[in-house]
């Protein structure tokens, strides 16, 4: 049984934004509901108003705009995973989206909700980070663009001001060859949150001097983590045993998994991250 709240649905960002501003912490956005309803049931969230944004035009679907892909925040995880543009240009995101929850959850869960829920191990966020995604945030006062990497403030906390709504995710289609992979481990093979998830992307994999590496890891820090120090170290390097040993050290120095996680010990998470990193040295 859910504790009582009022429900209000808007068909414009402007109206929703004004309402959200007016009611502050009493109001909470509802998109797919697969996190919000669970939190309400657990009494972790006690909104007076649930503000359904699913009636707002322009927040759904995936469009190709010249060299960009624009994903509406209300696009479901299944729609992301099955989209031809995403499969063609952003396969690491396709794989991440397909591991989120289960098939039924993915029919409701939205990519914008997965981002705004602020989980350090969000399965669409980890791949989006290695593609250098940007987010467009809208309110009644206008829009702003932000790098997704700057959007996370802590567990469950994102950089949304009063009345602000995540509108779109923007991805630049790479005009250079890339190779990438999404990794994930969970306690059981059935539906489970990630104990650790990780994305690796290599631009220009076949040219040692032009190589650029991007790595993001979930569930090892209070926010989804881009490991910039390691990326810089690996870019332009030949992937030898000596480089791997040094890379491992840099990786481990950057991880700070908390004690007391329900899903995995810090030791296990670190071992898995090193294991996934070895993909670079074996497959590229």
């Amino acid at each position: 049984m859910l504790i009582p709240f009022e429900y209000i649905k808007f068909d414009s960002i402007k109206d929703a934004s004004v309402f959200l501003k007016e009611h502050g912490d009493d109001a909470h956005i509802l998109a797919g509901g697969t996190d919000v309803i669970v939190k309400i049931r657990a009494r972790k969230l006690k909104p007076k108003y649930l503000v359904d944004i699913k009636g707002i035009e322009g927040l759904k679907g995936i469009e190709k705009d010249r060299d960009k892909i624009v994903i509406g925040a209300l696009t479901t995880a299944n729609e992301v995973a099955k989209n031809t543009h995403i499969k063609e240009y952003f396969p690491v995101l396709k794989d991440g989206a397909w591991t989120l929850g289960d098939y039924e959850i993915r029919n409701r869960a939205t990519i914008g909700g997965n981002i705004c829920n602020g989980s350090p191990s969000a399965d669409t966020v980890i791949p989006l980070l290695v593609y250098d995604a940007k987010v467009i945030i809208a309110s009644d006062e206008g829009e702003r663009v932000e790098a997704l990497d700057k959007f996370f403030k802590g567990p469950g906390k994102v950089n949304l001001g009063p009345g602000e709504i995540l509108k779109n995710i923007i991805l630049n289609i790479p005009d250079y060859p890339v190779k990438g992979k999404f990794f994930r481990v969970s306690r059981v093979e059935g539906m489970d949150l990630a104990s650790l998830n990780m994305a690796i992307l290599v631009a220009n994999p076949d040219s040692i001097s032009d190589r650029k590496v991007r790595i993001s890891i979930g569930a090892v820090a209070p926010v989804p983590l881009r490991v910039y120090e390691l990326e810089e170290f690996l870019s332009g390097k030949e992937f030898t045993k000596e480089i791997f040993d040094k890379a491992k050290e840099i990786l481990l120095n950057n991880l700070n998994p908390r004690e007391g996680s329900l899903r995995a010990t810090p030791y296990y998470k670190k071992r898995m991250a090193v294991h996934y990193l070895s993909w670079l040295f074996e497959e590229i």
């Binding site: 649905k9 509901g33 697969t34 309803i37 039924e104 959850i105 029919n107 409701r108």
Partner: peptide, 25 residues
């Protein structure tokens, strides 16, 4: 809480967990 699947129904032919959807939606 959407984990067991016993409440699965279709909304417009797509399977969903009906315990995570509001009637008003």
């Amino acid at each position: 809480i959407g984990e067991c699947g016993a409440c699965t129904v279709y909304i417009d032919d797509k399977p969903v967990k009906s315990c995570l959807v509001l009637g008003v939606e």
